[in-house]
Design a protein around this nucleic acid. Structure first.
Length: 229
DNA sequence: AACCAGGACGTGA
DNA sequence: TCACGTCATGGT
């Protein structure tokens, strides 16, 4: 068992399953251990929308934006595409950058339509304006249940503090470190996917508590992973 | 009241 | 390639 997987086990033992992704339309019937989402095109689209809106923003703000659309019966691509762009901007205002994110959303909808239900490749997603590596992985991992590890600022900060990467490690360096480490320990594809999904969520949960303000990692119990191997 | 949040893009060196 | 400025609102 390598250190990365050890960190995952420790986080899971501490916080339990996170139940990522919180669907707006399904809050009543949603349970953390139900990994059957998303189930249809509307739910996939909701994850894609949330993935764009959450760029450099807390998910609490994203939920507000998604709810603004939901109460207008506009949490679907047909309505968003046909609605006035200023109305869209107003709805997503709580999650910030509403001008460029409104554009990103419309750009993505064009791309989404061209897919005609197919699963997008990572490379194709990266060609869409407004979709960088993290947003692409978020869409693939949570929207399409693809084994793509999502790296974010918290992941980098955590691994850097624990001394598992160096300062110049880039997005893909970290992504492949996580994926290779987990593949080494998990052979079952379904379990691997769930681990990717839960791990990222657990890192965010944990990092909010210990890696939001300096000095990072103070009293973080993951330090024990260092000495244990 | 400064600081940061589940980033991406454009620019110049 | 890479460091840096910009985009914007909301919570602490």
């Amino acid at each position: 068992m390598n250190k990365i997987y050890k960190i995952y086990r420790l986080l899971y033992k501490t916080y339990g399953p996170q139940g990522w992704w919180p669907f707006i339309n399904l809050q009543k019937s949603y349970h953390p251990l139900d990994y059957s989402f998303p189930r249809n095109s509307d739910e996939i689209f909701e994850v894609c929308l949330g993935s764009i809106l959450t760029q450099n923003t807390t998910f609490i703000s994203v939920v507000k934006s998604l709810n603004n659309l939901h109460v207008k019966e506009a949490l679907n691509l047909n309505t968003i595409e046909s609605m006035d762009i200023d109305e869209l901007k107003t709805a997503i205002r709580p999650s910030g950058y509403h001008n460029q994110k409104a554009r990103y959303i419309l750009e993505f909808i064009k791309f989404y339509r061209s897919l005609d239900g197919a699963i997008p490749t990572r490379e194709a997603l990266l060609h869409v304006v407004g979709i960088g590596p993290e947003t692409a992985d978020s869409i693939l991992l949570y929207g399409y249940n693809q084994c793509e590890f999502k790296v974010d600022a918290y992941t980098q900060r955590l691994l850097l503090t624990l001394g598992l990467i160096d300062e110049k490690a880039k997005y893909h360096d970290i992504k492949y470190l996580m994926e290779d480490s987990l593949k080494e320990c998990i052979k079952d594809e379904k379990e691997l996917l769930i681990t990717y999904q839960e791990f990222h969520a657990l890192i965010v949960n944990h990092a909010k508590k210990f890696y939001s303000k300096k000095p990072y990692g103070e009293r973080c119990f993951l330090e024990e992973v260092q000495s244990s191997l």
